[in-house]
Write a protein that binds this DNA or RNA. Structure first.
Lengths: 130, 130
DNA sequence: ATAACACCTGTAGTTACTAAAGGTTCAAGG
DNA sequence: CCTTGAACCTTTAGTAACTACAGGTGTTAT
């Protein structure tokens, strides 16, 4: 039985965030001491650890909800693998988008290095109307 | 002299977003017809085109503000190159972060494929307390 | 004239938290 | 026992960067 501060330091999730997770239903409603202070047990610790790791891995709250079986039932191993795979796919897509961006930016910047025009070629190329 | 709808279809920026840009000062306060409808000229078109392209390239509003010289003066070519380079650096960092994530997810998923345990190894590995 | 459409304002919702204001409770030292 | 400072409580507002809606006015074509 630990306090919210202890839970926070054990998981690395900020106190406000833990209360927020309770509010939105990611964490169950915590039991209280007579004073009103929240108390947590090992189950809470495991659950928050799980949420924290998912967060580090970039899962959305909706994904975490599904993984935890918050609104439906506990998901099957297949469902979990499917959510994870889907998340991986979207990460790969994001990487590919960012790489394209980087290439475009690098092209645009290169015109700037050979700069002998009175007007900035980056600005020009970005405001040009076709 | 065109309407907000025309400007929107020429630039691909939604009408609500154009009004929003005016509200936050990215676009200048538009002139109005006697009816109250906004009217735009070529200068607005160039400016919105610029903003739209920057947005596609993932620049933050703060960056766009600097590039446009909204709060300070018109930036020098050096300043523009510096903002762009900085943005490229953060894109590269994001790519590298996402790649790490992807590798972690791929590791975690692989344990699931050889699944003969009664409990999901993905969930297990994510909620484990050390 | 009237329908259909474009435009107007103002406000609230999105995601995933974070921070601040203003008030209890707890634990340790004197 | 009393005090003081840390930790806790609630509620509300703020962040980025828009998007969407409600409820009203203007414009255009038949």
């Amino acid at each position: 039985m630990v306090s919210i501060g202890d839970l926070s330091s054990k998981t690395g999730v900020k106190i406000e965030t833990i209360r927020y997770f309770e509010r939105i239903g990611l964490m169950p409603i915590a039991e209280r001491k007579s004073s009103g202070h929240r108390v947590y047990d090992e189950t809470s610790l495991r659950r928050l650890t799980f949420i924290g790791r998912c967060r580090e891995l970039g899962f959305s709250q909706a994904d975490i909800r599904s993984l935890l079986g918050v609104e439906d039932n506990t998901p099957s191993c297949d469902e979990i693998l499917s959510i994870t795979t889907h998340h991986r796919t979207s990460i790969k897509a994001k990487i590919s988008d960012l790489r394209k961006l980087e290439r475009r930016l690098s092209e645009i910047s290169s015109t700037c290095l050979s700069n002998d025009t009175p007007v900035c070629p980056i600005i020009e190329s970005l405001s040009e109307i076709y």
